[in-house]
Amino acid sequence: MKLTGREKTELIFEGIITVILLLMLNLSIIILIQQSIEANPGLRDGIFIIKRSILIGPDHYRLWSWENIFIVLLLLFDAAVVYWRLIRRYHQMELRHIISELHYIANGHLDHRINFNLSGNTQSVVDSVNALVDSVIDSINEERAIEKSKDDLITNVSHDLRTPLTSILGYLGLIQDKQYRSDADVLKYTEIAYLKAKQMKSLVDNLFEYTKVRQMDTKLSYNRIDLTQMMEQLVASFELDAAKHGLKISANESAKQLFVEADAEKLGRVFNNLISNAIKYGGGGKNIYLKAKFISDEEAQIDVSNDGPKIPGKALDQIFERFYRVEESRNKDTGGSGLGLAIAQSIVALHGGYIKVTSDDELTTFSIHIPIKPGQKLTSQPDDPKSFA
Rank of each mutant, 00 (worst) to 15 (best):
G5Y: 10
I31G: 05
G42Q: 06
G46H: 01
R52G: 13
S53D: 12
I54G: 00
A80Q: 07
A80L: 12
A80V: 06
V82H: 01
I87M: 15
H97Y: 00
A106G: 12
A131R: 11
I140A: 07
E142P: 04
R144M: 12
D151G: 09
I154E: 14
V157M: 15
L161G: 00
G170E: 10
L174E: 09
Q176L: 10
D177Q: 06
V186A: 08
M200F: 04
V204A: 13
L207K: 14
R214H: 15
K219V: 08
L220Y: 08
S221R: 13
N223F: 02
Q229A: 15
M231L: 03
Q233K: 13
A242M: 02
G246Y: 02
S250L: 11
Q257Y: 07
F259R: 06
F259S: 05
V260G: 02
D263S: 01
S276M: 05
A278R: 00
A278E: 00
I279P: 04
K293N: 14
K293S: 14
I295M: 04
P312N: 06
E321H: 07
R330K: 14
I355A: 06
D361E: 15
T365A: 03
I372E: 03
I372H: 01
K373C: 01
L378Y: 01
T379F: 04
